[in-house]
């Protein structure tokens, strides 16, 4: 049986020399949850995310992703996660179809099911004639939708989204979040960083990092109550104001 908890960290710490980028963080993310990972620039979000993606080893503490240990089983972790970053993550001079084929290929999806999957995806996104156009010629909103679909093509247990909606208009952002809900409904856990506080409201739970540590964690409604403010903006500002380091 699939464990109820898909990401588990306990006293996770990462130092770079004297600098403690991630300081003793502990949290759990449940299967199918949409977990917002907030924090100001330089708060240590990226480092924590790199550890969870198996790119970086922690200095101390425990962390498992999809049941695999970040110290020893990072190759297994990579097989079970998807990733999409704020920097646009498809190849501009390949067509949509070629991008799907390539990313499917590096995740080891076999040719037959890859063909079926890519047709499905093209249908679902309503791409049709655009499927054989170069990605570079498509509008940004579309690219991001395709990018997300490609990131979950191999049915990962967790998908990490690093500021996925940067530079996109509100309508497209809303549509993008619909896709996130869809994925989460299918049981894919979504781990998302964002600077948009309205998006934080869309998450099941959020954590807010300040100076490498987790300053608050919980459902958006609980956090708002706890800090006695109207919206997540208020929560974030109260916490971030106390931050000592910034980029």
């Amino acid at each position: 049986m699939m464990p109820e908890i898909v990401i588990h960290t306990e006293n996770l710490t990462r130092r770079f020399g004297d600098f403690v980028a991630v300081n003793n963080i502990s949290f759990d993310v449940k299967v199918g949850e949409i977990f917002g990972f907030l924090g100001a620039n330089g708060a240590g979000k990226t480092t924590a995310m790199k550890i969870l993606c198996g790119l970086l080893s922690p200095s101390s503490g425990v962390a498992t992703v999809a049941g695999f240990d970040v110290y020893k089983e990072n190759e297994r972790i990579k097989e079970n996660i998807g990733y999409m970053s704020q920097k646009f993550s498809l190849y501009e001079n390949l067509t949509v179809r070629e991008n799907i084929t390539f990313f499917g290929g590096i995740y080891g999806i076999d040719r037959k099911s890859l063909k079926i999957k890519s047709e499905e995806l093209i249908q679902r996104l309503g791409l049709g004639p655009e499927a054989d156009k170069l990605v570079g010629s498509l509008p940004l909103g579309w690219k991001q939708k395709i990018s997300f679909s490609v990131a979950i093509l191999h049915n990962p247990k967790v998908v990490f989204l690093d500021e996925p909606t940067g530079g996109v208009d509100p309508i497209t952002r809303r549509q993008f979040w619909d896709m996130i809900y869809e994925a989460s409904a299918k049981g894919i856990t979504v781990f998302v960083t964002t600077h948009y506080m309205d998006e934080a409201e869309y998450c099941d739970r959020v954590s807010i990092m300040v100076d490498g540590a987790i300053a608050a964690i919980g459902k958006p409604s609980e956090l708002k109550q706890q800090f006695g403010v109207e919206n997540m903006d208020g929560v974030f500002l109260q916490l971030a104001r106390g931050a000592k380091r910034s980029e």
Binding site: L55, E75, Y83, K87, S89, I106
Partner: peptide
């Protein structure tokens, strides 16, 4: 382009 990141998080 940022695609390097994607490649590095892949199982490759």
């Amino acid at each position: 382009m940022g695609t390097m990141e994607i490649l590095l998080v892949s199982p490759m």
